[in-house]
Amino acid sequence: MAAPYKLTFEEQLRHIIDNKTKPPGALGRLEEIALQIGLIQQITNPAIQHPHIVVFAGDHGIAKTGLVNAYPQEVTAQMVLNFAQGGAAINVFCRQNKLTLKVVDAGVNFDFTSMPVKVINAKIGFGTKNYLNEPAMTIVEAEQAIEKGRSIVRQLAADGCNCIGFGEMGIGNTSSATLLLSAITGLPVVEFTGRGAGLNDDQLQKKIDTLQQVYEKHALNTLGQQPIELLSKVGGFEIAMMAGAYLEAVHLKMIVLVDGFIATSALLVANEIFRLTKQPSAIPGWTTLIDHCIFAHTSQEAGHEKILRHLGVTPLLHLAMRLGEGTGAALAMPMVQAAVNFLNEMASFESAGVSNKE
């Protein structure tokens, strides 16, 4: 006689979700998120604890030329001070949704250490070099940035955080993200090139021409599967640090929210590192970092919708935002909390005494 079939953990969790007092699937994406979070934490009553948004900031040498950016490089440091003083959009949304905000100096061309502001000093350098002329950073610097990102997340997890979203600040970083995504996906540079913080038509064309020149100079078409070298050629310190943060957050089974265009480029770099190092996943059938992540929103930045479509993922929100800073992740966090809450608090047909359709 055959042994009775034993449900897998995923089947048990799906049964619990389906048996809540609602038609199957009636809570739509919230049911998918509840299942994903339950699988990440490997429990049927998951919890969100001390959720954080971490904003990594860094400057880019290319920004000094004005070829790819509408705002001067000095705005990066000015915005970091704005974050530290509580005046930016990300501060507003974090306060609204009771999220802890951490701001990291990954490589801003400014010294914050003498100022009375709360900024995590993880500086690799005072901005990257101009990749139009030379590599943005050394291999060692790229590896240092990745490890710094991992260590920051490790510390937050040790302090009790299990849910995290990442944001960024860096004048010129949409250009770096464009080059990284083009190299990794093999799609043309122009597919991902957008207006960033507000380029007009002429400036946009100049940006496209400049980035195509950089792409060819560094032979990025050969580096799609060499993420560390790719970062060293055209990355940013904040993007490299965010890539390390993704790797550690997934390793620690944290709930990870992905923000916009630049944050997604960092995730793809991290995913290539994950793939090459063959890090084992704790979740059966999950083979990429993308499997572990919740995509918060579709940015209005030109290439973001294209890369999301390329990855086959559907974000939670579409608000025509293109600010960065982790704002999309902060706005999506209440939906993630709602998914956990319904799983834990909503009655089942049996407990409520409600007849199921059967």
Rank of each mutant, 00 (worst) to 15 (best):
I262H: 04
C94G: 11
Q300S: 13
G58L: 02
L211K: 04
E11Q: 01
H318Q: 15
S351M: 02
Q279T: 15
G198P: 15
T314I: 05
G285M: 07
M333K: 04
A330I: 00
G235Y: 00
I228K: 05
D111S: 09
P46F: 06
V75R: 00
K22A: 01
Y5K: 10
L187R: 01
H52V: 08
N45K: 11
D202Q: 06
Q212I: 10
F295G: 02
H15K: 09
G149Y: 05
H304S: 09
L343W: 07
G244L: 04
S182H: 02
L323P: 03
A240P: 08
A338P: 05
L316H: 04
I139E: 13
E168Q: 05
A183V: 15
H50Y: 13
S348L: 03
S355F: 13
N341Y: 07
A3F: 09
H15D: 15
S299H: 02
T288V: 14
R275D: 00
L179H: 03
D259H: 07
F83G: 07
E345R: 05
K129H: 11
I43S: 11
V68P: 06
Q155T: 14
G285H: 09
Y246T: 01
N19T: 15
I16G: 01
Q12W: 05
V103S: 08
A89E: 10
S348W: 03
T100W: 03
I152H: 05
H15Q: 12
A70K: 06
N341E: 15
F349A: 01
Q49S: 14
T288R: 14
L7D: 06
E143C: 06
L247P: 07
L101I: 02
I146T: 10
P23Q: 10
G328T: 00
I40M: 09
S232I: 02
P46G: 06
A296H: 08
D105S: 02
E301I: 02
V258D: 01
S232K: 00
A243K: 09
T128L: 10
V140F: 08
V250I: 15
N130R: 07
T76C: 06
G86K: 06
G172M: 00
V269M: 04
G172D: 07
D202H: 03
A330G: 04
G353D: 12
T210N: 09
F342Q: 07
L204P: 11
L181H: 00
K129S: 13
T210W: 08
S265A: 15
F9I: 14
G61Q: 03
F112Q: 01
A157E: 10
M79A: 10
N162S: 08
E216W: 13
Q144F: 06
T185V: 14
E272P: 08
P315D: 02
I307W: 00
G160L: 11
H52P: 12
T327H: 04
S151C: 02
L101Q: 01
V313K: 12
H297R: 10
G25M: 08
I239G: 01
K98C: 12
P334Q: 06
R275T: 15
L99W: 11
F192L: 09
M241S: 08
T100D: 11
T288Y: 03
C94F: 14
L204E: 12
T138W: 02
A57E: 05
D111A: 10
F56S: 00
A84C: 09
T314C: 04
Q203R: 10
